[in-house]
């Protein structure tokens, strides 16, 4: 998805993991993904670049669809769809 499309996407669950470092954001994403339905979109907010690289790999492994990331000032918004 393009950054414009991502900005307008309707997010079911937002996980704010900006206060935690690796592997915290992944653990929070794992916990949160269990609370949403298949097809729902989740965003993960993370302050570290590592998470932006890790989440697509996590999605591949878990079978979720990675949609893309937007860089905000000082953090990233990372989007994925539960499969």
């Amino acid at each position: 998805m393009t950054p414009e499309e991502l900005k307008n996407v309707s997010v079911t669950k937002s996980v704010d993991a900006r206060g935690t470092a690796c592997p915290g954001p992944l653990l929070e994403a794992k916990k949160a993904i269990g609370t949403i339905k298949v097809g729902d979109i989740m965003e993960v907010l993370s302050a570290d670049e590592g998470t932006r690289v890790d989440i697509p790999k996590w999605c591949t492994k878990q079978g979720h669809e990675y949609l893309g990331a937007i860089e905000e000032s000082g953090y990233y918004k990372i989007y994925l769809r539960k499969k």
Binding site: C22, P23, L26, L27, K30, D54, W58, Q62
Partner: peptide, 11 residues
């Protein structure tokens, strides 16, 4: 522990 948790996070 970090490696273990990262692995467990992806089941």
């Amino acid at each position: 522990m970090i490696i273990a948790l990262a692995a467990a996070a992806q089941d």
